[in-house]
Lab assay of single mutants.
Amino acid sequence: SEHYTFDGEEQAIRFMRDMEAKNLKYELQIHNGKYIIQVD
């Protein structure tokens, strides 16, 4: 699995939509205002 970190919500949402379009599962965590997305 890989981790991707985003500072902004818009970037994170765009990335998650992209993952959904590719049928990839992901998990979102928010730490200290950063959006951390783990992709299986």
Rank of each mutant, 00 (worst) to 15 (best):
M16H: 01
E2N: 14
Y35H: 03
Q29V: 13
M19G: 03
I13G: 05
K22W: 07
L24N: 04
Q11A: 14
R14M: 12
G8Q: 14
A12Q: 00
G8I: 14
V39M: 08
T5H: 09
N32S: 06
Q38W: 15
I37G: 01
D18L: 12
R14P: 07
Q38P: 01
R14C: 13
D7P: 05
I36D: 03
K34M: 11
N23Q: 10
Y4S: 02
A12T: 02
Q29I: 14
F6Y: 02
K34R: 08
K25R: 11
F6S: 01
Y26F: 11
V39D: 01
D7M: 08
E9P: 10
H3N: 10
M19P: 01
S1Y: 13
G33F: 03
K34S: 06
I37D: 00
Y35G: 00
D7Q: 07
M19V: 06
I36E: 05
R14H: 10
Q11Y: 06
Y35L: 03
S1E: 08
T5F: 11
Y26A: 11
V39F: 07
E27K: 13
D7Y: 10
V39C: 03
F6V: 02
I37V: 13
F15Y: 03
K22E: 06
E2S: 13
N23T: 04
N32I: 03
D7C: 09
R14W: 10
R14F: 06
E27H: 13
V39S: 03
Y35P: 01
F6P: 01
Q38I: 15
E27C: 11
K34Y: 09
Y4G: 01
Q29E: 09
H3L: 14
I30P: 01
E10T: 06
Q29H: 13
K22G: 05
K34F: 10
S1D: 08
I36K: 04
E2Y: 15
L28Q: 02
Y26D: 00
F15T: 02
Q11V: 06
S1I: 14
A12P: 00
K25P: 08
E9H: 09
T5I: 14
L24H: 07
E20Q: 07
R14V: 10
T5S: 10
M16P: 01
S1C: 10
E2H: 14
G33Q: 04
D40S: 13
A12N: 00
L24P: 01
K22D: 04
Y35E: 00
E20G: 03
I13N: 11
Y26V: 14
F6K: 00
T5L: 09
D7V: 07
A21D: 10
H3C: 13
S1W: 14
I36P: 00
F15I: 02
G33M: 03
H31D: 09
E27T: 15
G8E: 15
R17Y: 09
D18R: 06
L24W: 08
V39K: 03
R17N: 11
Q11L: 09
A21I: 09
Q38N: 10
A21F: 09
I30N: 03
G33V: 01
I36Q: 05
D18Q: 10
S1L: 13
L28A: 04
I36W: 07
I30A: 03
R17Q: 13
Y26L: 05
I30V: 11
R17G: 06
A21N: 10
H3S: 14
K25T: 09
N23L: 06
Q38M: 14
S1Q: 12
